[in-house]
């Protein structure tokens, strides 16, 4: 489902964010990406999303060579994947309801279907009472849940989440984990989740890939957090 072959990414300022990364993730897998700050986790996500183009190597998601997509085809590719961004990226002029509805509107669903689906989603991420609120009126955790809701609204085959529990307390984090696991099992959605939360990784053991200075330094099935001495 996700394949990275000899992928390197360096920026104009000379930073090598990823170095010769090789990775294969099967359909239906649930994988953690861990690593210290600046290790290249968000860069990896942006490569998968098509926002960045690899300097070298190949990024393939659901049979699409993401780095080779034409500019006009990038949005169409994104309709098959859901992305939860570290910085939320909600549209400030739209309410929570409208933000989620918008993602369905651009792919051309009809109004009735959209409304039904958005209500379902709001319930799923427990934001029913915030439907009419604007992003600036929400706490970080609430915005995060709105973003997750938007990412899963069109039932993507792949869900890529950058720190989806970054702003949540342990209890809410566990709730989100339960939600992601449910989507993973019930819809067979492939999930790639970036996290800093060692407790969460330890409690819900899954395949864990560790990045450090752009290298993959560990790839452990049923891993748990890798602690440094």
């Amino acid at each position: 489902m996700i394949l990275l072959e000899n992928v390197s990414k360096s920026f104009k300022n000379g930073v090598h964010a990823l170095r010769d990364v090789n990775l294969y993730i099967e359909e239906g897998e649930f994988v953690y990406i861990i690593g210290p700050t600046g290790s290249g986790k968000s860069t990896l996500i942006k490569l998968l999303d098509g926002e960045l183009v690899p300097t070298r190597g190949r990024v393939v998601v659901a049979d699409t060579d993401v780095g080779k997509l034409r500019h006009s085809k990038v949005p169409l590719y994104r309709r098959n994947i859901g992305v939860v961004f570290q910085d939320f990226r909600l549209l400030p002029e739209l309410t929570v309801f409208e933000n989620i509805a918008f993602a369905l509107q651009v792919i051309g669903l009809d109004k009735v279907t959209i409304r039904r689906r958005v209500r379902e989603i709001l319930e799923l991420v427990s934001l029913e009472d915030k439907a009419k609120s604007f992003p600036r009126e929400l706490s970080g955790g609430q915005q995060q849940r709105a973003t997750i809701g938007r990412a899963i609204a069109n039932r993507p085959r792949v869900l890529i989440a950058d720190e989806p529990t970054g702003n949540l307390d342990p209890e809410k984090s566990q709730e989100i984990m339960a939600l992601l696991e449910k989507i993973n099992i019930e819809q067979n959605t492939t999930i790639l989740m970036v996290t800093h939360d060692s407790n969460l990784v330890d409690m819900n053991k899954k395949r864990t890939i560790a990045l450090e200075e752009g290298y993959i330094v560990a790839d452990i099935q049923k891993g748990g957090y890798i602690h440094h001495d």
Binding site: S72, P75, R78, F85, L90
Partner: peptide, 12 residues
């Protein structure tokens, strides 16, 4: 806004 629209799949 344009970037976010592209993120959720809005065509050019």
């Amino acid at each position: 806004e344009i970037m976010i629209m592209r993120n959720v799949g809005a065509t050019n």
